[in-house]
Computed example of a mutant assay.
Amino acid sequence: MPEASVVNGLSLRARIAVAAAVTVLLGAVAVGYVNVAASRAETDRATPAPAQTLTLDPGPRLLVVSDRRLAVADPADPSAPRQISGLECVRVYAAAGTGVCIRPDTAWSYQLVVLDRLLRPVKSFPVPGLPNRARVSPSGRMIAWTTFVGGDSYAAAGFSTRTGILDTRTGTMVSTLEDFTVLRDGKAFRAVDMNFWGVTFSADDNMFYATMATGGRNYLVRGDNTARTLQTLTTGVECPSLSPDGTRIAFKQAVDGDPEHGWRLAVLHLSTLAVTTVSETRSVDDQPAWLDTATLAYTVRGSDGSPEIWSAAADGSGRPQLLAAGAESPAMLA
């Protein structure tokens, strides 16, 4: 799925192509979810795995979306049977026993559901637009999400993004990062075309990173949730993912600076801003997840559109390895 940066700063031809593609995509999604709504009674009768065997407890297991269901796979054995829950989700993530599931509510709307370790809903609320990203902080306290929305007059293709953050401990919610104060080169900055997506949290539950797009450029920003500020750090970073040790950012970068050419995975070293390219050569339109301090997981789509989860070394060595066929939205239950 394209990011907001596909729109910003492109030629007229590219903008028209993106607008057409998004129109087709939204139409297909709408038709698909009308069918989903029509068959909801049948699909919701699917028998979930026993609660005692399918949990969000930490362990060497991979949380995924498999055939539109929250599931758990064995990252060491792609052929092993998966534990499939009865929860319908289009995007999942979990950490420290707290999960998030973004699920269809009706044919035209979605809900974000916060889950406890036994997959029981503890909070739910509607989110606007089409779900794109979701993250949980390492402690399980903070949750973030990104959706595509329409209607912003500045958006050349008729859509933009909304990114929000929920503090599950206090209940405080930020509905959009556009309410934060942005500091670019140390000075307050404001523009009508700002878009944000792809939040990733640090271990302290306050600092986070995200992508900001404005004026045809993508920036990596560091956020302070308490101060409600965002500080630009560098450019060319989309869908950041902070490493477990807090020293690196895995991200996707547009080939030759042009999303029409696809994206490649890379790793930014925060201390030096040096970039290492990952060995995966296919286009990856995803927010990567860290399996451990040395390995990334990400979704690649085949020629028929079916998803697969692969892994690759963060230092650029070795070859990508298949983790789970017919699955997407990976999160290691560490």
Rank of each mutant, 00 (worst) to 15 (best):
V300G: 09
E178S: 05
G171P: 09
C239K: 01
Y219Q: 02
M332T: 11
D258W: 04
Y298M: 01
E328Q: 12
R264L: 01
Y154T: 11
T276E: 03
D179A: 00
T146K: 04
M332W: 08
V284D: 00
V18R: 07
R40T: 03
A28I: 11
Y33A: 06
P307M: 05
L25W: 06
P128G: 01
P138Y: 09
V64H: 02
I309Y: 10
L322M: 03
D179W: 00
T172D: 14
R68T: 14
V113A: 04
V64T: 05
A297F: 03
Q321L: 09
S271A: 11
L115S: 09
N225I: 15
S317P: 10
D245A: 08
V29M: 15
F159A: 08
F196T: 13
R248A: 15
G158Y: 02
G198M: 05
T211N: 12
R68F: 12
A157G: 04
V275L: 04
G257I: 07
S329C: 13
M142R: 13
F189Y: 12
V255M: 08
V34L: 06
R222I: 02
A80P: 02
T146M: 03
W310I: 00
E88D: 14
S241N: 08
R141T: 10
E260H: 07
W145D: 13
A313G: 14
P81M: 15
G158P: 05
A327N: 03
R222M: 12
T211K: 08
D74T: 09
V267A: 05
G262Y: 00
G164L: 02
A188L: 11
R61Y: 12
W310R: 07
D285R: 13
E238T: 13
D116C: 07
W263G: 12
R133Q: 10
S137I: 05
E178Y: 01
L26F: 14
P126F: 05
